Simulated assay, not measured.
Amino acid sequence: GGQDSKAIFLDQNGQVENFAMNDKCAAGTGRFLEVMAKALEVDLELLGDFSLAADKPSKISSICTVFAESEVISMIAKQERRENIIAGIHESAAARVAILANKIKIKKPVMMTGGVAKNKGMVNSLENRLGFKLIVGDLAQENGAIGAAVLASKL
């Protein structure tokens, strides 16, 4: 999500069986990626393509968005390749999301939804971290709204 990441495990009837959310900071979220794109002066929609062109992802050690931004600015000053920095950002964010997913003991198939699912580099990093392919629908960014509309129609 934009301000948080969630892992939701649904039972066979589509009911929430388990749920985890990073509610303490924005690391691993769409907002985190927005801040990093701005620091790198790269269009948010191009982050995925840049990331996939990396040859050696940079190591982002800070999990805090503010501190990670400082790390990125230092990397830019050291003239690290933007592609490598972005791949490192994706790996850092994927690590945070994978923690949530593993906390609820996810099982395949797994679908990634939300605007961040449109970022090919982020999807790739999360797949690598989890060890399997994710399902990303054409309407990934609209999934939450569609789900809310379906629930509201049942009231």
Rank of each mutant, 00 (worst) to 15 (best):
E83A: 13
L33D: 03
A117S: 04
L155N: 09
N18K: 15
T65F: 02
V136C: 13
G121R: 06
L151Q: 01
A54R: 04
E127V: 11
L44N: 04
L52H: 05
N102T: 13
I86Y: 07
G48L: 00
G121D: 09
D11I: 07
N119E: 05
A93H: 04
F50R: 10
Q3R: 04
D4P: 00
A117I: 00
A148I: 10
D49I: 12
I63Q: 09
T29S: 03
L139P: 12
G147I: 07
N84V: 15
A20V: 00
M75I: 09
A37T: 10
D11N: 12
A39L: 13
A7I: 09
I8K: 10
K24E: 15
V66P: 00
A98T: 01
F9K: 12
N13Q: 12
K154N: 01
D49Y: 06
Q141N: 07
D43C: 01
L40S: 06
E80Y: 15
G2A: 04
F32A: 08
D138N: 08
G144M: 12
A93T: 02
N22T: 04
S74P: 08
A152S: 11
N128Q: 12
D138A: 06
S74V: 07
S51V: 11
N128D: 05
P109G: 03
Q3E: 02
L134M: 05
V42S: 01
K107F: 04
G30W: 07
L155S: 11
A98Q: 07
F67V: 07
K6F: 08
D23F: 08
A87I: 14
D138R: 04
G121F: 08
P109K: 05
A27S: 14
A87R: 08
F50T: 07
Q15S: 09
V123G: 11
S153F: 03
G48P: 00
E142P: 13
E69N: 15
M75W: 02
E45L: 07
I86A: 00
G48K: 00
E41A: 02
